[in-house]
Amino acid sequence: MEVRTIKVFTTVDNINLHTQVVDMSMTYGQQFGPTYLDGADVTKIKPHNSHEGKTFYVLPNDDTLRVEAFEYYHTTDPSFLGRYMSALNHTKKWKYPQVNGLTSIKWADNNCYLATALLTLQQIELKFNPPALQDAYYRARAGEAANFCALILAYCNKTVGELGDVRETMSYLFQHANLDSCKRVLNVVCKTCGQQQTTLKGVEAVMYMGTLSYEQFKKGVQIPCTCGKQATKYLVQQESPFVMMSAPPAQYELKHGTFTCASEYTGNYQCGHYKHITSKETLYCIDGALLTKSSEYKGPITDVFYKENSYTTTIK
C-alpha cells in the first residue's frame, strides 16, 4: 500500500517557510505537534488534498525554529505562539472599519479597549522592536488589523473576551517599542525636605499616572512627601515624541487643539466601556464603527496623549 502524501510549508514567522512532505494517514499533531492554519487549530486533523502548498504555523520545537521565533517575536515564552494563534482565530472574524481616516474595530468580545489602543497607536510616533509587531502594525494602518490585535493580546497575556485596560495595554506595548531616546527629568520640591531631581528613561519617561493635564504637570502637581507634608512635583525636561497622561476616570474637559487623542471610560472596574476622542479640525468621538463630532467635550476621561518633541522648564 502506497503512502499518500502532500507537500506543505511549516513556519513560526510566515517569513521562513520549511518544506514538509506530510503523510495523509496521520494527523498534523502526530507529525508536527500543535499546528495552526489561519489561526485555526488543526492539530487533530489529517492532511487533505486542499492543504497542498498551504502554510501551517507550528510551535518552535527545534533550534532553527526557536531562533526564527525569537528573532521575529522577541520572546522565548513557549506558550506565546499558541496564544497568538488562538487569538487570531477570533480577531480574523472582527470587522476593521476605516473611521475618520483611522483603522478602528467594530465592537465584539469586549474589544473596546483594543480599538482605543489601536486608534491611539496610529496617532503617536512609535516604532516597535519585534519585527512581528512592526509588520502587523503597518498592515493594521492599511486596514488589516487582525494579526496586530492578536499579537497585542498575546504580548499582554490576554484572551479574547476578557476586559482590558488601555493604560495597561499601552504599557505592555511600550515595553516592546523603541523608547531608548526618551528621557524625563522631574523635580520634587518640599518646604521641609528641599528639592530632589529624578531622571527617568524609556517607558517611565512617557507615562504618568495622577493627572490628565500635561500643562498642569509642567506647572506642578501636589504629591505627598515622605515627611508627610505636601510637596510639588513638576516637569523639568521632556525628550520624547509623545507623552501619555493618565488618571482614574473623572469628568474632564478636553479643549480642541490642546491634545492629540484621549480615552474615555464609562462604567466601573468590573464592567465598563471605552471610547476614543481625537482632536482634528474639530473633536471626534470614535466608538467602534461609530463616529460623532463636537466642538467641545466633557466626560469621564482616563488617558490623554500629547505630541511632544523637546521641553525644558522655565521655572527657576
Rank of each mutant, 00 (worst) to 15 (best):
R4Y: 14
T5K: 12
I6A: 12
N16D: 15
V22P: 10
M26R: 12
M26Q: 15
Y28T: 06
G29D: 08
Q31N: 13
F32I: 13
F32H: 15
F32T: 12
P34V: 14
T35M: 09
Y36E: 02
L37G: 08
L37F: 11
G39K: 03
T43N: 04
T55P: 06
L59W: 15
P60L: 03
T64Q: 11
T64E: 15
L65K: 11
Y72D: 08
T76I: 11
S79Y: 11
S79I: 06
R83T: 02
S86M: 09
L88P: 10
L88I: 06
H90L: 12
Q98T: 14
G101R: 03
L102M: 15
K106N: 00
D109M: 05
L118Q: 04
I124L: 14
E125F: 07
A132Y: 02
D135L: 07
D135A: 08
A142P: 04
G143T: 03
E144M: 10
A145C: 06
F148C: 05
C149Y: 01
I152E: 10
Y155A: 05
K158M: 04
V160H: 07
V160I: 09
E162Q: 06
L163V: 10
L163N: 05
V166L: 13
V166A: 10
T169F: 01
L173Y: 04
F174S: 02
Q175C: 07
A177G: 03
S181F: 08
C182S: 08
L186H: 01
Q196C: 10
L200W: 00
K201L: 11
G202V: 05
A205D: 02
Y208L: 01
Q222L: 12
K229P: 04
Q230N: 08
Q237A: 12
F242R: 04
S246W: 04
A247L: 07
P248H: 11
P249N: 05
A250K: 08
K255F: 07
K255V: 13
Y265F: 15
N268E: 15
C271E: 10
H273L: 02
I277E: 03
I277S: 01
K280R: 13
L283H: 03
Y284E: 14
Y284G: 08
L291P: 05
L291N: 09
P300C: 14
D303N: 12
V304W: 00
N309R: 13
T312L: 13
I315E: 15
